[in-house]
Computed example of a mutant assay.
Amino acid sequence: MAKIITITSGKGGVGKTTITANLGTALALLGKQVCLIDADFGLSNLDIPLGLSNRIVFDLSDYMNERCELHHVEIKDKYLPNLSLIPCSKSHGHTHTPEAFKNIVENLANSYDYVLIDSPAGIESGFQNAANAADEAIVVVTPYLSSIHDADRVIGILEDTMSFSPKVILNMIEEDERKAQSLKMASKENIMSILQLEELGVVLNDSEVIRSIERGCPIALSPQEENGLRFRHIARNIIADQYEPYVPLKLKKKRSSIFPFQQKLRWISGRM
């Protein structure tokens, strides 16, 4: 039976979908069977950072409306055979009950080690459905006051509805203090003092993450990139249920972070 984790946020635009795609990739690289569920009906885009958009034939709405079987909806990742995606409908008109969604998640959980749900942002019904179906929750927060305040509100709701505190991933953190101040970013210490939770991990503000999304190739696949290593570190923390801090390695950064397809497959096969 899989551990079911909903990945959510207090507001949109904090990189929640990118975090979901990369955490799933990192967990799969560590040998886990992983299923990613896009639960953001209407704004469905988890397929984009995974590079799986052209493989979608059926989505979750098709299954819920009995137009196909659940295994017809599952899409295998291009690089990792132990990573799958369940896309959802891009139509705003679809509705489903919390019980129906939970049943789907629990059905999938029988075949995987981890099920990660990309939850809609905010506190509407989609957020509640994703939270009710999960065993754990991860809240993605950026260093901007609006994100921090909204995350604090969501954390309070999750603590009321779950028997444990959610975990936190800090995203888009700027290491250059002067640049962070000029952008009016809160420090990591200030964020955590407001949220009163331990951090599961930190992802840096890095243009390479944007490039990886555009290429449909998660940066977690790139061990020469600092954020690639950081996602793997977060995945290890999830597996071990710990909050070990990340220790950066002094690596010479190669800007061609997304290496050729055949070279990537050779590297991945050596890691499996």
Rank of each mutant, 00 (worst) to 15 (best):
A133K: 11
R211H: 07
G228R: 06
F164W: 02
E124P: 00
M272R: 02
A131C: 12
V209K: 09
Q262V: 05
R230H: 00
D206T: 08
T161V: 13
H94M: 13
L85V: 06
D47C: 10
S193K: 11
P260V: 10
V14T: 05
I213R: 09
D241N: 15
K32D: 11
P260K: 12
A131H: 06
Q128I: 10
H94Y: 11
V247N: 11
R255M: 15
F164T: 04
P120D: 14
E159T: 14
E175F: 12
D118R: 14
E136T: 10
L204M: 06
P218Q: 03
P166A: 00
S207P: 04
F58G: 11
I258W: 03
S146D: 07
L170W: 09
Q33Y: 05
Y243P: 06
L158T: 12
D206P: 06
G126Q: 05
M272N: 01
E66P: 02
L116D: 07
V73E: 14
D118S: 13
W267I: 02
L195R: 04
P81W: 09
G12K: 03
R55Y: 04
N190E: 11
K253R: 10
D77W: 09
I4E: 02
F261D: 15
A28I: 11
I104V: 14
G51F: 07
C35A: 09
G216P: 00
N205M: 15
P143T: 08
G201Q: 10
S147C: 08
D47S: 06
M162I: 08
S89D: 08
I148D: 00
K78G: 12
K254H: 11
S125T: 09
E124Q: 11
H233M: 01
E159F: 01
R67C: 12
A21F: 12
K3R: 12
S44I: 00
T97M: 05
D160P: 01
D152L: 04
I56H: 07
P87F: 01
Y246V: 04
K76P: 11
S212G: 06
N45M: 04
I7G: 05
D150V: 00
D40N: 09
E198F: 05
K167H: 11
I148T: 03
K253M: 14
T142D: 07
R232C: 02
P223F: 02
K184Q: 15
I213L: 02
E199W: 03
I37Y: 06
P223W: 08
A151V: 03
L145D: 03
D176R: 15
D62F: 09
I169F: 01
L195T: 06
P49W: 01
E124F: 06
S257M: 12
A2S: 15
A220S: 09
H96P: 02
H149I: 00
Q263W: 04
R255N: 14
Q181R: 15
G10R: 02
F164N: 05
I155Y: 03
N45D: 09
G15Y: 05
D113S: 10
Y63R: 07
D38N: 14
F41I: 15
S89G: 05
S193Q: 12
